[in-house]
Write a protein that binds this DNA or RNA. Structure first.
Length: 410
RNA sequence: GGACGGGUGGGUGAGUGGCUAAAACCAGCAGACUGUAAAUCUGCCGCUCCUUGCGGGCUACGAAGGUUCGAAUCCUUCCCCGUCCA
């Protein structure tokens, strides 16, 4: 560990700054890198993530990938699980107070998180910490003392609080505590650099100031752009439903990637692939000059991303499947199989609900009337259709654009 | 503690006693068009039953009660939120 051969500072900077939104202050990062090269001490770089959902999605990977870049450069990557702060709830970007998560939920989420994180980070080189380690043990006195280091006016500077105030929306007091408590993470970790999405800028800046209050050398704020979600409008988030989970089935991931607006793919190329800025620029030029079809460029992107998480083979298969189902309008090679016992005939609407292809019978009826249901690639016209289950057979059921199920009666 | 204003479907937000399963917009879904999309156009968009009909039943406008033939709309109590005052 002591014999780190660090790359020259300029080279490191170039590699690290790739795709970054902001580095505050940039000069300080340079200094820190210089002294690290000199002393042979790696920088302590951390990323704090609240396990608010059991799955991480592509949006999270942007900043994780950056942490990995620091790891690549020989620095200490610290992945901080905000198991305590998740229970407070980050007010960032929230137009309302979010309901706190229970301890159990957080624990379950945290577990599944790590496994996914290691798809990007090198597990052997990653320092994993949980902020309940110290936040869970603080006395009220210590909390009060911590709060004494910051001013309300400064807290209210932030956009989400201010706009809520202006619009007469509630702000719960504990929400004010969030940036302060997470600042204590930075204090305990004695971090040199903290990574985050641009929306975390305010929080990370507070962390920096609090570190100074505690007599530490303040960390560098390193932010990454926010990945726009599949709708091409809002940020990728689970609650908006415009996300790509990294553990989703390859075909699903692929389909989702393809549903982004064309223009968005460049930002994706930059933030969620390992392509160099130069390589991306070249690709873009090809498309603009008409040498490469935008759809093919997008398919490459999708294949690369799927491949990165699920293996190259899965990526290729997903691409083939997409080609087959959507471009050639044929049934997928592999559809999920559902087995049904032989029995009396069943209404198609009931069957669709049973197979969880739709949420209710009313919805099933609507879907059929809208010509969105197919059996063995033939559109079903009759909403009252009954399915014969009297003897063993097999058929392919399609509900809507994407949902296929191979039903096996036995 | 007081005064005032407010809580409507996934979201924004209209609606002040029947014509309201609730305008409009957004999101979502389906179909058409395409190059997968996006954009655009058309339709759908609480649940359920069947004889699938401008059909029947049930549930829904913060909660619980009440008035009424009839309530998202009126009354009472409670909960929650905001603003101002203390």
């Amino acid at each position: 560990m002591t014999q780190h051969k660090f790359r020259p500072v300029e080279e490191q900077l170039e590699y690290l700054k790739k795709g970054a939104a902001e580095v505050i202050p940039e000069e300080e990062l340079k200094q820190k890198l210089e002294s690290s090269v000199k002393t042979g001490e790696p920088l302590r770089v951390y990323l704090g993530v609240d396990p608010t959902a059991p799955d991480i999605h592509l949006g999270h990977t942007v900043v994780l990938r950056k942490l990995k870049h620091f790891q690549d450069m020989g620095h200490t990557a610290i992945f901080l699980v905000g198991d305590f702060s998740a229970m407070i709830g980050d007010p960032t970007g929230q137009s309302e107070t979010r309901p706190p998560l229970s301890h159990e939920q957080v624990e379950v989420n945290a577990k599944t998180y790590l496994a996914q994180v290691y798809k990007i980070l090198d597990s052997k080189k990653t320092e994993v910490r949980y902020n309940s380690e110290w936040l869970g043990k603080m006395s009220s006195y210590e909390v009060v003392r911590l709060c004494g280091h910051y001013r309300l006016a400064r807290m209210l500077e932030r956009e989400d609080f201010r706009s809520r105030l202006e619009n007469s929306l509630p702000i719960a007091v504990h929400e004010l505590l969030y940036p302060l408590l997470t600042a204590y993470d930075a204090v305990m970790l004695k971090s040199d650099v903290e990574l985050g999405a641009t929306e975390q800028k305010f929080n990370i800046l507070v962390h920096r100031e609090i570190q100074r209050e505690y007599g530490l050398s303040p960390q560098v704020v390193f932010t990454m752009p926010i990945l726009v979600g599949l709708d091409g409008q809002r940020k990728m988030s689970k609650s908006l439903g415009n996300y790509v989970g990294i553990t989703e089935p390859p075909a699903e991931m692929f389909g989702k990637m393809m549903s982004i607006p064309d223009e968005l793919m460049w930002s994706y190329y930059e933030l969620v692939t390992d392509r160099t800025p130069l390589g991306i620029a070249e690709l873009k030029k090809e498309v603009e000059e008409g040498k490469l079809h935008p759809m093919d460029a997008k398919m490459r992107l999708a294949e690369e991303v799927v491949g990165g998480f699920q293996g190259a083979e899965a990526g290729r298969k997903a691409a083939e499947n997409f080609q087959r189902v959507f471009r050639e309008r044929r049934a997928p090679e592999e559809a999920p199989v559902e087995k049904l016992p032989v029995g009396p005939p069943k209404k198609l609407t009931a069957l669709l609900v049973e197979l969880k292809l739709v949420a209710s019978k009313s919805e099933a009826e609507r879907l059929i009337k809208q010509r969105g249901v197919e059996i063995n690639e033939a559109c079903v016209e009759d909403a009252r259709k009954e399915i014969d289950l009297s003897k063993p057979r097999e058929f392919l059921l399609r509900a809507g654009k994407k949902k296929f199920v191979r039903v096996v009666v036995e």
